[in-house]
């Protein structure tokens, strides 16, 4: 369970986030949706403390993250896995080393144990027999999957994914969506996913938060999207002819 209260964030003179409050339950897929540039990445990075918020509070299971010291935050960070928009794999390390990295750093495991766990995670995301390749040598979809493997290596309580399926073909995108869904229900993880992919919304979204120009414009369940009168949300969700048609047939 993550709760955010009245978060605001600006860079120099431009305010990006305006007074956002919401909560994310565990074992559910919480989606943050919004147009490119609406502030999704900034919101996600603010929640995990990669950006310092100007105002507001963030609670990880009741623990106030915003007022914590660097040391206390470090403890929570070990419970967090994050998949970045570009994958952010360490490009001078092999895939196996990438997944082993957090284990070697924090889990007090021997090399063998860490390797075993890394292989388990790689298998979980269906990247096998590629342990000794470098990130540049595999496809974008596979990079995303390895990034997920690295994020779940330490059995995180919280998983954040920034557009895990952007730039991927529809089939691979669905594979990744389903993978995230499975993993978080399996381990009861509190998960927040940024996306502007409507397929993800319809496939895996349990709770949806719509960000518009840095403000929380709408939130609700997936099915409620079909019936909402929120103009901006409708413009965003039903931008394509396909979704317009689907809605027509639904209503």
């Amino acid at each position: 369970m993550i709760e955010i209260q009245n978060i605001s964030k600006s860079f120099r003179n431009t305010q990006v986030l305006f007074d956002i409050s919401t909560s994310f339950e565990e074992g559910k897929v919480n989606l943050i949706i919004g147009q490119s540039g609406s502030g999704k990445t900034v919101l996600l990075k603010s929640i995990v403390g990669l950006h310092e918020v100007d105002a507001g509070n963030i609670f990880f299971h009741g623990r106030n993250f915003t007022t914590m010291s660097f040391k206390e935050r470090k403890e929570i960070r070990k419970e967090i896995g994050m998949v970045f928009q570009g994958g952010a794999l360490f490009d001078s390390s092999t895939l196996e080393e990438n997944v082993m990295f957090p284990l070697r750093m924090f889990a007090n495991m021997s090399v063998e144990e860490a390797r075993e766990r890394a292989n388990f995670c790689l298998k979980r995301v269906e990247v096998e027999n590629r342990n000794n390749l470098y990130p540049a040598e595999i496809s974008g979809g596979m990079q995303k999957r390895v990034a997920i493997a690295r994020a779940i290596a330490l059995n995180p309580k919280y998983l954040f994914c920034d557009e895990p399926n952007s730039g991927l073909d529809p089939r691979t995108a669905i594979v990744i969506d389903n993978l995230i869904k499975e993993i978080i229900t399996e381990y009861n993880i509190t998960c927040v996913v940024n996306t502007h992919d409507m397929n993800s919304v319809m496939e895996i979204g349990d709770k949806i938060v719509f960000i518009y120009q840095g403000k929380k414009w709408w939130e609700g369940k997936r099915d409620e999207i079909w019936e909402t009168n929120n103009v901006e949300l409708n413009d965003f969700v039903f931008a394509s002819e396909l979704y317009k048609k689907i809605r027509k047939s639904k209503l």
Binding site: K45, L50, R77, K78, F84, A88, D91, S92, F106
Partner: peptide, 20 residues
Amino acid sequence: SQIGTMRVTEQIDALEIMGV
């Protein structure tokens, strides 16, 4: 350029988020 690339491709963020 090595560290700069790690910065712009969010590899440094990835380290920070792990608590490194």
